[in-house]
Amino acid sequence: MRVFTEERDWGQFHDPKSLILALVGEVGELAELFQWLPADAAVDRAREDRLHERAGEELADVLIYLVRLADVLDIDLADAALRKLRGSSARFPAEEVRGQAPDKS
């Protein structure tokens, strides 16, 4: 992502706020694909060729902006994700929460 950006001199546009707004926009485009699908049919419908392809494109856009944002902020995304998962594992022990939606309180 960094090389792609540098080759086009787009770094000047990649401040955190702009990247976050682009990321939110792409998440919105992904959400739009599923907005009116019945929840119980979404997975099956997402396997259909056209929706599957479009979902993949939007997920790729989300990933690209997320990776670029992490790069700009000098955050090791893989390390941050592993630390987050370790914290969530401690906060939500599987034997205590299996089959239950997490309580946000």
Rank of each mutant, 00 (worst) to 15 (best):
R91L: 11
D9P: 00
R54V: 00
V24R: 12
R50K: 11
L77Y: 08
R54Y: 03
Q100V: 04
R2Y: 07
A90K: 14
D74T: 06
A80F: 09
E7Q: 13
G56Q: 02
A101N: 13
A42I: 04
G56C: 05
A81T: 10
P93H: 13
E95Y: 05
I75G: 08
R50G: 05
D76P: 05
E96Y: 02
L73H: 04
R47D: 02
A31I: 02
V43C: 06
F13N: 10
G99E: 04
D103E: 12
V97Y: 10
V72L: 06
H14W: 08
G99N: 11
V43H: 14
D61K: 02
V3N: 14
P38Y: 07
A42K: 13
L23E: 08
Q12A: 15
T5E: 03
D61S: 10
A80K: 13
V97L: 09
V62M: 08
L19K: 07
G28W: 11
G87K: 11
A78E: 13
H14D: 13
R54G: 00
A70L: 07
I75A: 09
A39F: 11
E58D: 09
W36P: 00
D103Y: 02
A70F: 06
V27F: 10
D71T: 09
G87P: 01
A60P: 01
